[in-house]
């Protein structure tokens, strides 16, 4: 499902993965001092437009991924209402004996929306980035030691298999007459075979990698080089414009 979007030939997919990641981290940093609800709302809207317009992701799929996150975001609101740092003055209504203040609702929405902004930027990255390119870019641009890069790549390859194995181990237990139980003992029954299998596989994979001549040197030729290109320049421009627009809009209209 993800792969289909990650391999699309759209603008966001062509931007250097490390650059996109830097963008995500920047956004998180920028959002830290913001406590009004409108700025994150505005930024969130723009981000969704970006993902759909420049990444070719369908709005339904995006919604599907964000939906469970809404619950998480909502928790910020109600906790802010019930346990605020200081209660606001504009009381809207009371739930039982507890007054609900407009200021607290605003802060709650702001914090919830902030979580959603983080999530949307994460999705912007995840949905438009091919894992192999990501790994190569980390090695080539961020100087990640190849051992770690290719090691992670190897593990990534096995992910679908782990999920399948978890399923198979469950069935095996049922075939052998071990009912479903709860608790740490049961967790251990799944965890141990899964981990033991993973460790054995990892050892064999590492040995196979070395037997193919992989020594983790940094100076290796690359068949696929991730170069800086004009898409990266465009992305930087776009990103800065986005920040400026959000800043101006916020200063002009949102925070009075």
């Amino acid at each position: 499902m993800l792969e289909q979007y990650q391999k699309k030939n759209r603008f966001l997919q062509k931007v250097n993965p490390s650059l996109k990641l830097a963008g995500v981290l920047m956004i998180i940093a920028v959002m830290v001092p913001v406590f009004d609800p409108w700025t994150p709302l505005f930024l969130f809207g723009l981000t969704v437009l970006l993902i759909i317009g420049l990444g070719g992701v369908s709005i339904r799929f995006l919604g599907l991924l964000l939906l469970p996150f809404l619950v998480f975001a909502f928790s910020f609101l109600w906790i802010q209402v019930v346990f605020p740092d200081e209660r606001g003055e504009t009381i809207l209504f009371s739930i039982g004996s507890m007054p609900v203040a407009l200021e607290n609702v605003y802060t709650g929405i702001s914090l919830g929306m902030r979580a959603l902004v983080f999530a949307s930027w994460s999705l912007l990255f995840v949905l438009t980035t091919d894992p192999t390119r990501f790994m190569l870019s980390l090695i080539q641009q961020c100087k990640l030691p190849p051992r770690f890069g290719y090691g992670m790549m190897a593990a990534y390859r096995f992910l679908p298999m782990f999920r399948e194995e978890l399923q198979q181990i469950r069935t095996a237990h049922r075939i052998r007459g071990l009912g479903e139980k709860r608790g740490l003992k049961q967790f251990k029954r799944y965890f141990i075979p899964l981990m033991a299998g993973a460790i054995r596989k990892a050892e064999r994979t590492a040995i196979a990698m070395e037997s193919k001549g992989f020594d983790g040197r940094r100076s290796r030729p690359f068949y696929q080089r991730i170069h800086w290109n004009r898409y990266d320049a465009c992305f930087i421009g776009l990103f800065l414009t986005l920040l400026v627009v959000v800043y101006i809009v916020r200063a002009q209209w949102l925070v009075s």
Binding site: P131, T132, Y150, M153, A154, Y156, R157, M161, K201, R204, T205, A208, M209
Partner: peptide, 9 residues
């Protein structure tokens, strides 16, 4: 084991 001698996609 054919499965564990690859590390790429």
């Amino acid at each position: 084991d054919p499965d564990t001698q690859f590390c790429m996609e």
